[in-house]
C-alpha cells in the first residue's frame, strides 16, 4: 500500500506552518510494529523539523520571477516509511554541506545539516529548471 499526496503552496514564509502541520498529520498516520509511543513522537517531530528547514530554504532562495514562487510538497506514504519531496524553481544547490562550525557561533547554515541528521535518506536531483529534494525515514 502506498498513497501519494501532493500539495502546492505559495513560496512565502507565512505558509511554513501549513507545510509543517500537513507534514505532522501525514507523519502521524504511520505506525510501526513494536515501536514505542516515544519513537512515534520522535518520528513525527523529525519530519516537522526537516520540512520546516527545507521549506524555509526554498522560500529564502526563491529569486525574482515574473510569477510568484511556489513550493510543491509530495508525500509518499508507505506502511512504515514516509518520503517527503520538495520541488521548487530556484537555482540548483548542493545538499553536501559540511557540519556547522558551532564554536564560531554561526547564525545560518544549519538547515541542510539538520535535515541530513534527522532523516534516514536525503537525495537531491535537478529536473529541468526544478530542484527536488527528497527526504525519507522509516519508523
Amino acid at each position: 500500500m502506498s498513497s501519494i499526496i501532493t500539495l502546492t503552496l505559495p513560496g512565502d514564509p507565512l505558509f511554513t506552518e501549513v507545510a509543517r502541520q500537513t507534514t505532522t498529520s501525514v507523519a502521524s498516520l504511520l505506525t510501526g510494529e513494536n515501536r514505542s509511543a516515544s519513537d512515534e513522537t520522535q518520528f513525527i517531530h523529525d519530519f516537522e523539523l526537516a520540512i520546516s528547514e527545507a521549506f524555509t530554504n526554498s522560500v529564502k532562495y526563491a529569486g525574482e520571477h515574473d510569477t510568484p514562487p511556489t513550493v510543491t510538497l509530495t508525500f509518499e506514504i508507505e506502511k512504515r516509511r514516509l518520503t517527503v519531496s520538495l520541488l521548487d524553481a530556484n537555482s540548483p544547490f548542493s545538499i553536501d554541506t559540511p557540519a556547522p562550525d558551532i564554536e564560531s557561533y554561526p547564525e545560518n547554515g544549519y538547515g541542510l545539516w539538520i535535515i541530513r541528521k534527522v532523516m534516514d535518506c536525503v537525495t537531491y536531483r535537478r529536473e529541468g529548471n526544478s530542484n527536488i529534494i527528497s527526504m525519507s525515514k522509516t519508523l
Binding site: 509543517r20 516537522e48 523539523l49 520546516s52 528547514e53 524555509t56 558551532i102 557561533y105 554561526p106 547564525e107 545560518n108 544549519y110 538547515g111 539538520i114
Partner: peptide, 13 residues
C-alpha cells in the same frame, strides 16, 4: 512548542 534552525541561529547569533 517548535524551534528550527532559524530560531537556533537567532539564539546562537
Amino acid at each position: 512548542d517548535f524551534m528550527d534552525s532559524s530560531g537556533l541561529g537567532a539564539i546562537v547569533g
